[in-house]
């Protein structure tokens, strides 16, 4: 397969960036998008051109490190799929593919396709944990959790913190990310006691870091590689309301 690529290249955080055109050939349909970029980079290195800089780690869709905007979609055109899991067979032979970094004021471009996502870490540090001492391994089923709650918490815990929701949101809001953490931790007995303070501190940190507010566009759920749904945002809103009333009382 052959493709015509338009890739965003930028020397550093302060440098101006622009698109560069590349033609790639002899691409095997089973290759992932990142492997296609690897192949292009080998050719660029041979020509003495600096390779395209991008992030990746597990390359199996569970770490949240990779992530770029492919043809206008965060992570690419395939629903519930991270960039590393996109296969070239998902594109038409000869197709033009536009690749850009995630865009948000809180995600400054570091180089080419790499953005700084520390803002999400700051939000986690504000309350995305349980501070209960859990001791050594408890017996399985020592704390009983209803099946529905287990499922719900597990679905929310699938969030890999990749930042695609922020990249896709017209307001660069991190509400789906925060909502996933609140739903994941707040549904389980160990995380329940801190649910109120968590809802307040994480949303306040979200604003402090410069993420926008939620306008219910729902672009986030359309690009989430882990299928986190916007109902979790409604749940976060309920948790926030409860916490605010509790603070008043």
């Amino acid at each position: 397969m052959r493709f015509h690529l338009k890739v965003w290249r930028q020397e550093g955080p302060e440098a101006p960036g622009r698109f560069f055109d590349y033609d790639v050939d002899d691409i095997i349909p089973e290759m992932s998008l990142l492997e296609m970029l690897d192949k292009l980079n080998e050719e660029l290195i041979k020509k003495g051109t600096p390779p395209i800089t991008f992030e990746s780690d597990c390359r199996e869709g569970i770490c949240g490190t990779c992530g770029m905007v492919v043809n206008g979609s965060a992570h690419g055109p395939q629903p519930k799929t991270t960039t590393c899991e996109i296969r070239m067979r998902h594109f038409q032979d000869g197709e033009a593919i536009t690749i850009e970094p995630f865009r948000a004021a809180v995600f400054p471009v570091q180089k080419d396709l790499i953005v700084e996502r520390a803002g999400l870490d700051k939000v986690i540090q504000a309350g995305g944990y349980t501070s209960a001492y859990t001791g050594t391994h408890a017996d399985a089923n020592a704390i009983l959790v209803p099946k529905d709650d287990q499922e719900y918490a597990m679905d929310a815990a699938a969030c890999i913190g990749c930042g695609a929701c922020v990249a896709a949101c017209p307001n660069s809001s991190a509400m789906l990310f925060v909502a996933a953490k609140i739903a994941h931790l707040g549904t389980l007995p160990q995380g329940k006691p801190e649910e109120a303070s968590r809802a307040l501190s994480m949303t306040e940190a979200m604003q402090e870091e410069g993420f926008g507010a939620c306008s219910n566009h729902f672009e986030c759920q359309a690009v989430c590689p882990k299928g986190i749904r916007v109902e979790t945002i409604a749940r976060l809103n309920r948790a926030f309301l409860k916490a605010s009333l509790k603070r008043l009382a």
């Binding site: 905007v69 979609s73 850009e100 017209p170 507010a213 306008s215």
Partner: peptide, 23 residues
Amino acid sequence: ENTKAAPTKGTFVTYKEAGLSSR
């Protein structure tokens, strides 16, 4: 605030769920 948080959404923006109304 939202405009400040998202000065640009890239050159190639596609909307999947956000309609004319919400935008």
